[in-house]
Design a protein around this nucleic acid. Structure first.
Lengths: 196, 196
DNA sequence: TGTTTACTTGAACGATCGTTCAAGCGATAA
DNA sequence: TTATCGCTTGAACGATCGTTCAAGTAAACA
């Protein structure tokens, strides 16, 4: 066991995050991990197998961070910080602004069924995380009691997805922060009626 | 001139929209267009050259549709319809829910510089289109006069981006429509102050 | 009429893709 | 000691990638 497992996953995550599943070639992976093809295949079966582990690890980390937000004294403030951190990192980490899951969804049809399933399930996990945050906000009195939990959670995840795609192109952090402010305002705002 | 130009672009658009730039191989393109490689290269120089034309055509169409929205008697209602049409098409046109431009942004680094430029410029064009809609709404009294035009335009485009990524995964149109309702509510709602 | 030009054909090119495999290594168990 | 097992190596595989090119066709112009 020459190479540490967590170390491998971490390096692979960086590569997939930067380049995407398809564009990250096996030779890129070999170089990034400093491993030979045989080693990679003996451990992970395939490029897709490695990617699956990367996605699962990424989702687990993200879910953990969302859980921290929900546990915070002021979940609403913690949510704000979470958005700000994710969306306004330094320029050399610009690739991180794009959510790895969202990036993967864009190339969902090029990915094998196994990793595809991992991506979609991870999205569900994060959705549950957002829902917990909404509920925590209501409990702490930071959001009105009548806030439609499920709709708001879906909406919040949606905002996150949109902002991450947008922040990737945005040079001006000030604009991004205004968008985050708007999210918080709208989160407290009105919600559509179900009847239609 | 055996093949009609517009016909070629239209077929190529469908293919790139479905598969993305990278995943759409030259042999897929040859089959979709019923053309041999030499013909394609004589006309479009490269795969990227064809893609560039597709993007420009797509952006032009989209800009035209946004212009129609701005010209409508009730731009706000027209905006609603525009969102609804784009996000809740029939299942066999599900690929269309994802904005071709947004999809292309996800693989921006795999695309050559020429097409990359076309994608980014097209995003600017659409942003201007959204801005015109905001202004039309204000003029018609459908939005308050103090609405920050530029911020709102960026926000609106952002919502569109997010919703299109989201609707791709969403099975339930009812949920999508609720999200659109929420967009309209928030559009009329409060906006963040610039001071920070 | 011959020349030019834009377009078309389809075989073929070199490069790169994900993957395989025989061989070797080092730790553990019998 | 010997056998087994997970991991490692690196050359090599077949498939596919975007692209080229010599040759041919048809319309436009001289």
């Amino acid at each position: 066991m020459k190479y540490d497992h967590n170390d491998i996953i971490e390096k692979a995550t960086t590569l997939f995050w930067r380049r995407g599943f398809h564009a990250a070639g096996m030779r890129d992976i070999q170089q990034a991990l400093d491993m030979r093809p045989g080693s990679i295949y003996a451990r992970f079966q395939s490029k897709e197998g490695l990617f699956k582990l990367v996605i699962e690890q990424y989702a687990q980390n993200s879910a953990e961070r969302l859980k921290q937000v929900a546990k915070a004294e002021s979940p609403l403030n913690a949510l704000y910080s979470f958005f700000e951190t994710a969306l306004t990192g330094p320029d050399e980490q610009r690739y991180m602004r794009q959510c790895l899951l969202v990036k993967s969804i864009a190339e969902l049809e090029l990915i094998g069924d196994i990793a595809k399933k991992a991506v979609l399930e991870s999205m569900q996990t994060l959705k549950a995380g957002f829902r917990n945050i909404i509920e925590a906000c209501i409990e702490k009195g930071e959001l009105p009691k009548h806030t439609p939990t499920s709709t708001a959670a879906e909406w919040l995840q949606n905002q996150f997805v949109g902002l991450r795609a947008f922040a990737l192109l945005q040079d001006d952090n000030q604009t991004t922060i205004q968008m985050i402010d708007k999210v918080i305002i709208d989160l407290k705002g009105q919600w559509p009626q179900k009847t239609h």
